[in-house]
Structure formats: C-alpha cells, structure tokens
Design a protein around this nucleic acid. Structure first.
Lengths: 353, 353
DNA sequence: CCTCTCTGAGAAAACCTTTTCCCAGCTGGC
DNA sequence: GCCAGCTGGGAAAAGGTTTTCTCAGAGAGG
C-alpha cells in the first residue's frame, strides 16, 4: 500500500539572482550587470559574481526576463498533420533553425478541428509567443483557424496562406521539370506521367511542367493519367498505359519512362512493370516524387525520386519568422523553394554511361 | 525597391489588467478578483468589470501569472525520433491530453546529439517547464541526455527510462500473444515467426510470447527467424521457411500462418507468398506488428496487424505527468499498456465462419 | 584648498498579475 | 450613543530580472 508508493520528491527551488547577489556581497543590480557584461565595475567584482553564480548553478528565470522584455523567445507551430510525413521534416527544420537562437517551439496539433485550433491559438497568445508558423499536410488547404490580425507575425510553410502573408512552399513545377529533364538527358523520349487526383493543386502544377518540358524538347505529349495517390493506382495505370489505346506517335509505341506523382504510385508502377516482364530501368525508367526514403529504398530497384527539401523549407520559414519578430520587414507573397532529384537506380544511366 | 517592401506591421500591444481597471473605475486588485470570481463586491461591479474586459479583449498575461504561481503550464517533450512513425502518435496523444488543461508542449528534437540534448534541456529549464516527457524511437535505448535530478518531474514514454523513474511502454509480449492466439482461434496450427534483429529488446519479448502461447496450446514451436525490419527480409524468410530444412513436426509440413515482427516484413512475406503461388489468407495467414496504416492497407490483401495504441500511451503519460506536477505521488516503475489487434483480411476467418 | 570629472556600485522603477491584509462606512443590537 | 460585525473595495507585496538614474568617493587640475 502506502509503503509501495514513493514519497513525492521535493524538487529543489531554483536559485535566484538575489541569492547570487547576497552571497557575492553586492546588489542585484550589480549582479545582473556582472552576468550580462553590462555596466561598470572592477574586473575583480565581476569575476567574483560570475564565480558565485556558477557555483550556485544560477540560471536566470526566463519568465521574468520575458515579462520585462516583452519577448518570450517562444514561437507556436500549428499543424494539422501530426501523423503525416510532410510536416514532420518541416517541423524539424523549424526547430533546428530556432533552437540555436534560444527560441523554443510550441507544438500544436489542431487536426481539422476549428475548436481545437482556437484553443491552441488562444493558449499560444496567452503565453505571449513571439510569432506563429502554420504548416500542414497540403499546400492547397487552409488550416481551420484564422491567423490574421493576431498581433504577432505569422509565417506559412507548406500550407495555404492567407492573402498578403509570407509563405514558403515547394516548387512543384520545378521538381517535375527536374524529373522529366533527367529522363530526357538519359535519352528517354516517350515519357508518361501518372499522378494523383485532380483535386490537388500540385497535380496540375506538376502536370503542366511535364507538358512544358516535353513541348520544349519537341517530344510527344501524352495526357497525364490522374488517379489516386496509391500503389493500386500505379498498378492500374500501367495496365492502361501499356494495353490501352492511348499511345505515343500514333504508332503504338509504349512509354520508355514514367514520371510518377508520388513514391507510392511509383512503387505500384514498378511492381506492375515487373509483373508484365518489363525491366526497370532497362525497358522503362521510373521516377517518383516526395523521396519518401522508406518507400523509395524498398522498391526493387531503388527509386529515383524528387525531394521537396522540406527540412530546408522549415529552416527558411523559421529564420524568416525570427527576422520578422526582430522588426525587419518582409515582402509578402509565396516563395517557392527548389526541389532536388535524388538519383537511385530506377531511371537508368545515360546511353553513353 | 523599397516600395516593394511592405512596411513592418505595427502589432497591437496587448491590453493589461491595469487598463481594464482604469476604464472600470476600480483598482487592479478589484479587477483581478472580479475576473477570477474571487473576493467580495456587488454583482453590478463584477459585471461591469467583466464587460469592460470583454470589450477590450483582455487576456491575462500568462508570463506574469506563471511568475507568481511558480507554474508555467508548459511541459517539454524530448524526442530523438522526429521523422519516425512511433513517437508521432505518442506526441499527439500527449498534446491532446494536455491542451484541455491549458498546458502547452515544447517540442524538442534532440536527434542523437548530446550537445543538442543539453541545449534543449537547458532551454526548457530556463523557461520553467512544469515537467518533461521523454520519448524516442526505441523502447530499449536511452535519449542522449541525463534527466535525473533536474528539479522537475520526468516521465518516460516509449523510450528507455532511468532507474526509479515512471515509464510507459507498450506490452509487446501481450501484443504478440494477441496475434498468435488469434491464429490459434482461427484454426491455424503451424505458426511461424519472422522478426527483426536480435539487438532489439522487443524482438525477444515478442518471440518469447510466441513460444509461450504455442507451448500452452501444445503446438509445435519453430525457432523464430531473426533478420532485419525490411520487406527484403520478409521475402528471404519465406524462402527459408518454405524451402529450408526447418520444418514442423519433422514431417515436412509448411507453415499455415506467419506472425511478423513488423508490417514491412509482413508485406515482404505476403508478396513472396503470392509469388510462389500460395494464397493469403487461404493457404497461409499473415499478421504484422505496428499497424502502420499506410503499409497495412497497401498490402494485398490488407494486413491484420497489432497496434501498440501509442496515442493512448502518450495520453496516459501526459496525464500522469500532470498529476506528478500537481504533487500527487506516483509509484516508480515501468507500466506496460496493452496492444490491440486490428483485423483486416490477411489472416482469414474462423473455420466455421 | 576647491572644484570637476570619473569610477564603481546601489536604489528603484518597470513588466503584469494575484493575494493578503487592511480600512472606511454602515447596520443592528442593546 | 456605543460597539461588534459585516460589506465593498483598495494598498501593497510578491514573483525575478533589467535598466536607468543617482550618488558617494577618489583623483586630478588649477
């Protein structure tokens, strides 16, 4: 019974500046200045105070500092994608960028619940966050909260911004160009595109870039195949692509490359190609999107994929928020950050290679 | 140039209790008491102050409250698994449990970097967090920080605790029993186990439970196949299991069920079985572990899997931390929380069903 | 010897809220 | 008329730090 229960540990009370001052035989004002390198005093006094603080393990109370400075050195991170793989790297980038500046991040998962969103925003505002970053699972969807006129700066990262706000998103069109141009350099000439549902803005951005590159190179353009973001759709799309009537050049030629809208589709495509005896990358090259490592590396052969550099995006968002907090102006608008192509083995080597 | 740049917005200064009091024609003391339902005053006065506060949009400054109450209503969440899929649900559960109590969560990703860990812990302590929750990607590995004698309560969730601490982990043995007993109820009698590397504690816990159940039921025990956590190992294991010399009953019988250590292995097993013409679940049933939805639902047929209830685990950890912060004692030790079996289609129906 | 300037350090206000006294005025009882 | 007790509300301290202002003393210049 009671004997099983550990007595509540008594947690040591943190040591205050007043105690440091008393033990150093000076006033709190002098102690404060000594530790902050401010004011004038003999080097000996300063050193003595420093040593006392060190010995006592003094750490200034951030709460008191924040109250005075009207700056809490915290920011709020709002997301509706706690489980997803997109906002995670973004969050990590933000946190990394800020921890070095002594800024901590409140994690707020609002799901898609307006009430929860308001709850979190109110809590953040009460705690006097210096700023807020909004992130999410889709670039073309709003968080379920109104972040305008909050009284603190707001940055949007990988989610739909309010008009007039500062936002960072991935350059999906640029990423798609990277993939298609890579195929072209490799000598592929009949490039198909299998992607997600039309309800996603990125689907259109990537598809348009795909068409643009093909047109620029004078290659035949095949209308992109829209479906779901699943492996199953990748399977099905291969069937349509290789059995159906939609063929290149009107000569019945089959694709020699498939650019996929995400890695799961790509995986379905690769599996389906293998099942029908087509070699990847020898007969058909495949490139995915998202560079979801655990999927890209589990495909056989490992998947070349477009990486959206989400960690860098988060870092950029964090640093920009900080400069906004510091009072520097920032031009509103959407900044697109470049993607990069991670080459593995599913797209083959150049003809001469 | 400069005309492109938005002028720095002037952020409204938050309204203070002093202003509310002045506009209500009372002292700050009275205003405070009116808003907190404390003290004595006419109902009319109280209501007038409330209305003024409402009209001005007054929100008490948490920093000042915290300073006074010596309680910040924040907790720190330490993790070394920002990218992983295990600590995410845990984090979500923690955050959910705490937001309703007005407690916000500092997200601190320490990777496996001792310096970063110390940086985050110091920042949290400076900001006077009420407590700390440590979580990670493995139940049998320590975070790269020392959390003993911090002066605040600490709870461990899904990571290796310090001795004498309060910790929550999943009941891996129980989860494994769930899977094997489910096979047994379904009439499967030759149950194999394919799992991860011996360096993981959970591998042994699950394997022992597997042996225990088989022994209890009087079924033949086959030594578990240890490998990596990958699809590739699932493939390979099927080859060994169905071609190799290790067979049930010494009569050359093949397994009619495979319990896998995670969902990726299970996926590899299912694919390999299909490739050799064995039907799932008709010829062989398969159960995975982790219930990683995106994988479990992409297998064909969809995968039955053991769910570790990580969100519930996080919630429990959050609530326990709060009670510790409130001064209630808690018995130290490791609490194992039950798993649950999510039945999909990879294990078949009972003989009579 | 007087005044000016500089040096080292302290007092006090400020940040914002909560809480503990305290007080003035009024009512009621005798 | 006097006292006890109650009522409505205020003053002030507390929480921990930073910063501005002030001040005493010492040294220097005339």
């Amino acid at each position: 019974m009671a004997s099983d229960v550990q007595p509540t540990p008594v947690f040591a009370k943190p040591v205050t500046l007043r105690e440091v001052a008393a033990l150093s035989g000076v006033s709190v004002a002098t102690a404060s200045k000594a530790l902050n390198g401010q004011g004038r005093m003999t080097a000996e006094t300063r050193e003595r105070i420093r040593e006392t603080a060190q010995r006592l393990g003094f750490r200034p109370n951030s709460l008191a500092q924040s109250l005075l400075r009207r700056r809490s050195f915290t920011v709020g991170l709002l997301t509706n994608d706690t489980y997803g793989r997109f906002s995670l790297p973004v969050m990590s980038g933000i946190s990394d960028a800020l921890v070095d500046k002594g800024v901590s991040v409140f994690l707020c998962n609002v799901e898609d619940d307006q009430r929860l969103g308001q709850l979190h925003v109110d809590a953040m505002l009460d705690k006097r966050v210096d700023g807020i970053i909004a992130t999410g699972k889709r670039i073309d969807r709003h968080l379920p909260v109104d972040l305008s006129n909050l009284g603190v700066p707001v940055i949007y990262a990988f989610t739909q911004p309010d008009p007039g706000a500062v936002a960072f998103v991935s350059d999906d069109a640029g990423g798609a160009r990277l993939a298609v141009e890579h195929f072209w350099r490799l000598g592929r000439r009949r490039i198909a595109h299998v992607t997600g549902p039309a309800s996603f803005a990125v689907v259109h951005a990537r598809a348009q870039a795909y068409r643009d590159v093909l047109t620029e190179k004078g290659l035949p353009v095949m209308e992109p195949s829209l479906g779901s973001w699943s492996e199953a759709w990748g399977h099905e799309a291969v069937k349509k692509l290789f059995d159906g009537p939609k063929l290149f050049n009107g000569k019945g030629e089959k694709p020699d490359a498939v650019f996929c809208g995400n890695d799961q589709i790509a995986r379905g495509v690769i599996d389906a190609l293998r099942e029908r005896g087509l070699g990847v990358p020898d007969d058909v090259g495949v490139i995915g999107f998202d560079n979801w490592q655990i999927v890209a590396e589990a495909t056989r052969p490992p998947l070349t994929s477009v990486d959206m550099n989400l960690t860098a995006l988060g870092r950029e968002a964090g640093l920009t928020l900080l400069s906004l907090v510091g009072g520097e102006p920032a031009e509103p608008g959407i900044r697109k950050l470049p993607c990069r192509l991670v080459v593995r083995q599913s797209c083959g080597r150049p003809p001469g290679g």
